[in-house]
Each structure stands twice: as C-alpha cells, then as structure tokens.
C-alpha cells in the first residue's frame, strides 16, 4: 500500500465523516431555513473530497480527470441549489401561514 493510497483512505474517512455530519445535522436542525445550512459541509467539502480521494486512488489519467470534474460539479452545484431552495422556502413561508415553523 503506497502513501497515495493511505492518503486516499484518510481523505475518504474525513469525507465520510463530513457527509454523515451533514446528514445528522439535517435531521437535528429544527427550522426549515436552518436545515439548509446542513447542506453546506456535504456539498462543499464531503462530496468533492470523495471525488478527490477516488482520483488519488485511481492515479493520473482520464479516469481521474472525470472524477475531478464530478467533484467540481458537485462543489459548484451545492451553493447554487442551496440558495435557490432558500429563496423558495422563504417565498412560500412568507406568503403562507407559519404553521410548519416547528416541524
């Protein structure tokens, strides 16, 4: 097992932990708007880190490039979708009764 693979494994562990943390936060955070903050670690750190770990494990080549592209797409898509969801949540919650503020 080379240093590269060990590094990849370490990144995998960190990434998995981040993703699990995000998922846990999604469950725990009470308000719908606050829940959106739970998405950030997963999309910005966890997912790209997994892609990076895989790219590292695969070694240089076309496969690694594809993996990095996927990582970049995930990292870029996260904030954009989060903001869009936030806007819809705000818009609909403002126009309607705050009945579900506590769910």
């Amino acid at each position: 097992m080379t240093v590269r693979h060990v590094l990849a494994l370490a990144m995998l562990v960190v990434a998995t932990a981040t993703l699990l943390l995000s998922a846990g936060a999604l469950l725990v955070l009470p308000r719908p708007y606050a829940r959106l903050h739970a998405l950030a670690p997963a999309t910005s750190l966890g997912a790209p880190l997994v892609a990076l770990a895989l790219a590292l494990d695969t070694g240089p080549g076309r496969g690694a490039v594809k993996l990095l592209v996927i990582g970049a797409l995930l990292a870029a898509g996260g904030p954009v979708t989060t903001m869009a969801i936030g806007r819809v949540t705000a818009a609909t919650d403002n126009t309607h009764s705050p009945e579900d503020a506590g769910t």
């Binding site: 592209v69 797409l73 870029a76 904030p79 954009v80 903001m83 869009a84």
Partner: peptide, 15 residues
C-alpha cells in the same frame, strides 16, 4: 433568477 443560478446554468449547459 438568482445571479448564481444564471451563472451556474450557463456553465452547466455545455457540460
């Protein structure tokens, strides 16, 4: 549309 959405869409379309 949110500017971020616009930019992201424009970038994602060719990909």
């Amino acid at each position: 549309v949110l500017p971020s959405t616009r930019l992201f869409g424009a970038l994602l379309l060719p990909v």
